[in-house]
Simulated scan of single mutants.
Amino acid sequence: MLKILYISPENTVGTLSYWKKAHELNGNHCRFVTFYRTMSGYNEDILLNLPFIASRPWYIGFRRWMVRKTEGRESHANLEGFPPVWNPPQWQRYLWRLRERFWKPKISRAIREYDLEDFDVYHFEWGLDFFRNAEFAKKMKSKGKKIICHYHGQDLRNRGVIPEMDAISDLNLTNELDLTYMHPNLNYLFLPYDVLAFDVKQSIGDPLTICHATTNRIIKGSDLIIKTCRELEKSHGIKFVLVENQPHEKVIEIKRHSDIFIDHVGELTWGYGMNSLESLSMGIASATYLNDIYEKFIPDHPFINIRPDNIKDVLVRYIEDPELIMQKGKEGRKWVEKYHDYRNVVRKLYEYYREIGIDI
C-alpha cells in the first residue's frame, strides 16, 4: 500500500477529492492538505486556514494591481521562458517570507499532528511547497520520497516554475495541453471527474437554455459570450443563464436545467476544464474554443467548437436543430466517461508512477 499526500493552496474545482477516491479505490492511503477553504464549497481534508491568501475577489484584485504596478504587465499575460521561471523583485520575496513566518507555526503543527513526513509520494499542486524555498519538499526528497509537481494553468503561464521545486521534481504533470509546450519535461494527464455520479439529460427545455459559468471573465471571454447570448434571447427566444462566483452545489443545480453549456471562447486558454466535464457528464451539449493543436490531440472530441469570430453563427445552427443538441449531449457523455472518469484516469497516473520507480 502506498501512502500519497497532495499539498495544494486549495481544492481547486474539487479535483483533490477525486484523486483521493481513485487512490483509495486501488487500496492506497491518500490525504490532501489545503492552505485555505475553497470559495465554491468543495470538500476539505486537512485544512490549514492560513492567513493572507485566498481565492476571493479582493485578494485576486490586489494581486492583479500589484503585478500591474510593480512589474508593468497584466497578471494574466504569459511569461517567456522554457519553462517560465518565478523571479519576482526582492521586495516581493520579502513579503512572501514575512507571510510564511506567520504560517510556520500552523504548518509545523499540522506536520506533527498528521504525520505528514510519513508518506511515500508527494504531489505539490501548482508546483508549490508550503514555503517558496521548498524546504519541506527538499527534506522529503532527502529521505528518498518521490516529488511530483502538478501544474494547472496560470501557475505556469503567469507565475512560472519555482526553481527550487523544479530542480527536485521527479515527475511533472498537467491537465492543460498548452502547458506541455511551455516546459521541457511535462506529462499530460486527463483531468479526473466522477462522471458516473450523473444521469444523462433526456430532452430539450422550453425555452431552450444556454448557460455560462465563470470565475474569471477575462480568461473565459465572458463578456463576448454574454453579449452574444443576450442577442440570441431577442432573436431566437432562448433563455440565457449566467452563473458567476456561486457555490458549487448551486452551479450544478443550475447547469442541470441547461441545454447548451458554454465553457469559454478566446485564446487565453486553449481547451476545456471542470466546467465542461460537469456538463458533458450530464449529457449536455458543451461549447468551447479548441485550436488546431487541441483538435488534433483529441480528434474524437464531442465539443461544439466556437471562436470569437463565429460564436453566434455556430450557436444559431444548434438552436435551430434541437436533435443535433441531443446528439452532441449523448456523444459527450460517452467521451467524458472514457477519458475523464477518475477510475480510468488513475491508471495513467500509475503508469507515470512506474516510470519514476514507484512500485505500484
Rank of each mutant, 00 (worst) to 15 (best):
I325F: 07
A54E: 06
V251S: 00
I311N: 15
A54G: 09
I254F: 05
L242K: 00
L79C: 09
F119G: 13
H257E: 02
G81Q: 09
Y339Q: 03
M282R: 05
E267I: 12
R317I: 04
Y339E: 06
T70W: 08
R217S: 14
Y59I: 15
L95N: 05
V243K: 00
Y6I: 12
N291M: 07
K106I: 11
D129T: 15
P299K: 01
E125V: 10
R64G: 13
H257D: 01
M66C: 10
F119P: 12
G205T: 04
I53P: 04
E253T: 01
D341M: 02
I107R: 07
D263Q: 01
S75M: 08
E278L: 04
G81T: 08
I60Q: 09
I60P: 03
I107S: 10
R333F: 01
R63L: 13
E80P: 03
G329T: 08
K141R: 09
K250H: 00
L280A: 02
D263T: 01
R230N: 13
K255Y: 00
K146Y: 14
Y36V: 10
Y122F: 15
L2R: 05
G266M: 07
I107L: 07
K21R: 14
S222N: 09
E253V: 00
V243D: 00
Y318C: 05
Y318Q: 08
N185Y: 11
Q92M: 12
M1W: 03
A54M: 04
V251R: 00
E117P: 11
G283K: 01
A134M: 14
A285H: 04
S55A: 14
K227C: 01
P84F: 13
V314A: 07
